[in-house]
Each structure stands twice: as C-alpha cells, then as structure tokens.
Amino acid sequence: MAQAAAAVDDHGHTTTGISNFKVGFWTFIASECLFFGTLISTYMVYKGRAVVGPYPAEIFDVLITTISTTVLLFSSLAMVLALHAVQLGKKKHAIMWLLAVIAMGGIFLGMEFNSYLKYIDYGLTLGSSTFGSSYYVLTGTHKVHVVLGMVWMAVLIWLIARNRIPPAKAEQVEIAGLYWHFVDIIWIVIFTLVYLIQ
C-alpha cells in the first residue's frame, strides 16, 4: 500500500496539500480509536463484576508492567529517530533504529507474554470470569497490533536495505510511525485504566 499512495501522491496535488495516504491513514486511526474504545469500555463496564477470582488486584504486578510500558515508550523514540534518519538519507541509521523498534516491541511482547503465563497460573483464563475475558481480549488485540507493527517495520527495513525508500519517500516511514505511536498511546491508556486505576 505504501507505494500506491506514493504514486497517487506523485500525481499531484491534493486539496489539503496533505497526501491521500496520510489523510486516509488518520481516518483509519480514527476508526481504530473506536475499536479500542469499545474494548476498553467493555473492560471498564465489567470492572469489579467478576464473579470468581482471581481479581485484578491479586495478580497485577504494576512494577513489571511499568517496565514493559517504558520499553514500549522508548520504542516510539526509536521510531522518531528512524524517520529522521530516513529523511536525511542515512540508511544504516534508519535500519538500526527500526531494528531497535522491533527489538523493543519484542521485549514488550515477551514480558507481557510472561505475565500472561503467570496469570494463567493464578487461574485467570479466557473463560474464568468477565475479568479474564475482557482483559485477555483487550490486551490480546493490542498485542496483535504490536506484532503487525513489527512485521511492518521488518518490511520497511527490507525496503530501505534495497534503497527503495529514498528521502523523498520518507512518508512511508512516517505513516508506519503514525501507526506505531498510535499503538503506544493506546497502550498508555490501557496501562492507566487497567493497571494503575484499579
């Protein structure tokens, strides 16, 4: 899709001066907001209504989650630096920072996955209670987004390595960055509402 947009863009001129791809992607993010909004609302609605344990306060380890959240936050910084490098045509830097994004995403996923295993040990499963259902589906959906983002970064690395993203096409990386930042911000909302305010 990246190239399609760029090509349309090459064709010219848009009413707002912003490329179609970017406008379209913001629109898509608006749609995603409603998607996560619904998932988060469900979690909030069911908060405190689980019939059987384990209950959130019994199993959440805020410290561990704070660390994983921080890692994810720093991946956003790496994303910004990657974009900057692409814009300047610094191929190696760009690849390095994108690799860092993937790595930090991986650490986040690993830590979260580890937490899942712990929760399952405590007896929290998809079907154990409304807490289990809404927690796993909410955070699981977020993790799927993280994985997709990592795949996207990998494709970008491949393209950059093959000189397919010159500075003039830096918007392709910018859009990927939009997505990645969005996924981060959603996680901060989840972190606040699910872990911090119990």
Partner: peptide, 21 residues
C-alpha cells in the same frame, strides 16, 4: 469478536452464569 470468542473459545462476555451480561 466477543460473540465469536464466546461461541468458539469459551469466553463469558454474554454468559450470565459467568457474570457476563
């Protein structure tokens, strides 16, 4: 998605017995 999970993967989003509404 909730409905599919309730039907296929045993979540309790809409299952009154599990506290779902």
């Amino acid at each position: 998605i909730y409905l599919g999970f309730d039907r296929l993967f045993g979540t309790v989003f809409f299952q009154p017995a599990g506290g779902g509404d």
